[in-house]
Nucleic acid binder design. Structure first.
Lengths: 205, 205
DNA sequence: TGACAAAACGAACGTTCGTGCTTATTTTCA
DNA sequence: TGAAAATAAGCACGAACGTTCGTTTTGTCA
């Protein structure tokens, strides 16, 4: 009981720290100090640093899903939901859900060069996320909201790219307009794909 | 003389290593071992790890300019050069100029959360690069190759985003088609901006 | 309340980190 | 060729790393 609560608060802090310093830069001693507890006590919860990293990724994924994905699912499927997902992602950056920017963008670029279970876990999370975007695109096609010829994988690639670009410009370059630019890029791209015959519905936007 | 040669070979290796392990994961002991020299001997060349990191960024920038930017400058200014820059960048990923993928993408996401001179150096390099893309776009406008209404900053943002997305998909997800997708995304985007009155020139592509 | 389990602690392990010093070996050039 | 200068190595340092240990504190429940 108590242990689970502690574990959760450790992971909460670990996620924040890792978004700033990286999953490798995340350090058990530093984390313990931050939480006012002993290294050994903290360590016992995970058994190894690698296990801590994996648990941190899981915790980050949970926060991400709660803050980005689930809220967007409330919007009706099809074009509206696809756009809601994009807006939700950009809002998640603006709200600083992770203090160091997108946890998964950072982790992706940190681990893309080294093999191991941590890299695999990051890749799996990202696969799921990009897959979710693809699915939303496919739904928009199925609903007849966007053209049937749309290549879902291609479009998901482009949208995800814009997310990375937005995170980069916002976090590193401090470009306040980065999120506006990303919004415009995605809106323009998606708007061009809307079904002509459904133009009467565009006013809903 | 000799020192300069050694320094260069150290930096060559440092760049490779940092592209894989990150600039913070880059370690003096590991680097010295790799090169078959002593930590202290290597250390003397730089005086501090931070100085080594800064020199590594410079060396990476030099390699990047030589491998990506300068070759593209041989192409005539305007639309052709803009496209050449994009193709050159994608080729640079395909050729594994840095063993861990784009050095600057990795460094950007590694340091976007922490202040300091290293972060500033990374940001400066990226500013220059994005600025170079912007300039190429502006030239294409001036040459009358693309529409005068194009927002150079916006377009540069989008192109750079695609680069990040391509690096991500190629390096972490091992998606061989990532570079094709990036090419298509950029081609389609740019093609739509070409001046109608100059359509007779489009065959040149 | 008392007994047992869970959780946290403090100290220490061996290793590696970045960084100083001092000494030895090369390079360079008058 | 030999002296001066540049370069590399050797050694040691304090701190931090992940990890293990035995002990103590805290929580849970019969």
């Amino acid at each position: 009981m108590k242990g689970e609560r502690t574990r959760q608060s450790i992971l909460d802090r670990a996620v924040d720290l890792a978004s700033l310093e990286g999953l490798e830069g995340l350090t058990i001693g530093r984390l313990a100090d931050d939480l006012g507890m002993s290294k050994s006590g903290l360590f016992a919860h995970f058994g190894s640093k690698e296990e801590l990293q994996l648990a941190t990724i899981d915790a980050a994924a949970e926060r991400f899903v709660n803050e980005v994905f689930l809220p967007a699912l409330k919007t009706e499927r099809g074009y509206p939901r696809l756009m809601a997902i994009c807006r939700s992602w950009l809002s998640y950056i603006r709200r600083n859900v992770f203090p160091g920017g997108c946890f998964f963008a950072a982790a992706s670029f940190e681990f893309d060069g080294r093999p191991g279970v941590v890299r695999d876990a990051v890749a799996k999370s990202m696969d799921e996320w990009v897959g979710a975007i693809e699915k939303a695109i496919t739904m928009a096609k199925d609903e007849g909201h966007i053209e049937r010829t749309v290549d879902a994988k291609q479009l998901a690639f482009e949208i995800n790219s814009i997310f990375f670009g937005a995170n980069f410009a916002y976090q590193l370059r401090g470009d306040k307009r980065a999120l506006d630019r990303a919004t415009k890029a995605i809106e323009d791209r998606l708007e061009a794909l809307r079904m002509k015959s459904r133009r009467r519905l565009t006013a809903v936007r």
